[in-house]
């Protein structure tokens, strides 16, 4: 149960070993008018792993995620997913939104099957798939409820089920638990780890919570603000076979949290 990490000063992106990269980020820059949001981002994301983009607010982590999703165009640089350059959203990527982005006029069942509905999957089939993922995220019995009848945590489960239902290789999660209360968030993090284990997909996760990042990530990419750059890459290497409560008390876990905090504290006011 030992956690090791690369020292912050001697970090070199090229030395970070990445086997089987599904997503490659190459020289991404983003300007909003005269504001430089991201500068020269190079990253690789591995299959079956969960990588977190972590940083203080204003570091452009959500922008980077939306560029990978194809929702926001980059000013320069390119994104390569499964060997093909990204020009917009694609079926191999699915996005989970911070504010859930559920259609208030549609039931849970229709919301979860919406990605399939857009692709023209027949109703029978998409409802069957949607039901199985609703079960997977623990929402059996809520198929015919509307989003406003669910708690914040349950709504995000709908958002996650919707992303899984389209069977994408890459899941992009934009601060998915930030609108969920603390008790539910822990449960969520555990469920997410179970899903990563089961689904063998590539997860790219954005958060501003250091504890959350260390707990769920195989790899953490630290971004520095204004303009956003990669300042460090850390592999927490936490033994996930242990009990969740033990992990949170593990000295290795706490050391990584402390190391990241030391790296970020000078960005705090």
């Amino acid at each position: 149960m030992n956690a090791t990490a690369l020292a912050a000063d001697e970090f070199d992106p090229a030395s970070v070993v990445t086997r089987d990269p599904v997503v490659r980020v190459e020289g991404i820059c983003k300007h909003y008018g005269s504001v430089e949001a991201l500068r020269g981002i190079d990253l690789q994301f591995e299959r079956g792993k969960l990588t977190t983009l972590l940083g203080p607010s204003g570091c452009g982590k959500t922008t980077l995620l939306k560029i990978i999703a194809g929702l926001v165009p980059a000013t320069s640089g390119r994104i390569i997913v499964n060997g093909r350059a990204v020009t917009g959203p694609g079926p191999e990527r699915a996005f989970v939104f911070q504010d859930f982005a559920l259609m208030p006029w549609a039931t849970v069942l229709r919301n979860v099957g919406f990605g399939l509905e857009l692709k023209g999957v027949p109703a029978d089939e998409r409802n069957r798939i949607a039901r199985s993922y609703i079960g997977e995220v623990g929402l059996q019995g809520f198929e015919d409820k509307y989003p406003h009848e669910l708690s914040g945590g349950m709504r995000q489960r709908v958002g996650i089920a919707r992303a899984f239902a389209v069977n994408a290789d890459v899941l992009l999660l934009d601060e998915p638990f930030s609108a969920v209360d603390e008790q539910n968030r822990r449960k969520f993090q555990e469920d997410l780890l179970r899903l990563v284990e089961m689904e063998r997909k590539t997860f790219i996760f954005v958060t501003h919570s250091i504890e959350e990042a260390v707990y769920v990530s195989d790899r953490i990419v630290l971004l520095s603000p204004r303009p956003g750059r990669v300042s460090n890459i850390i592999d927490p290497r936490i033994d996930r076979t242990a009990d969740p409560d033990d992990i949170r008390r593990d000295p290795g876990y706490l050391d990584v949290v402390e190391e990241i905090w030391q790296g970020l504290r000078h960005y705090a006011e």
């Binding site: 917009g88 959203p89 694609g90 079926p91 990527r93 699915a94 919406f114 857009l118 692709k119 389209v166």
Partner: peptide, 15 residues
């Protein structure tokens, strides 16, 4: 209109 819903539709390659 909620821009996040429009993004959601785009992310699932809605026309």
């Amino acid at each position: 209109v909620n821009p996040s819903l429009v993004d959601m539709c785009r992310s699932f390659q809605g026309t």
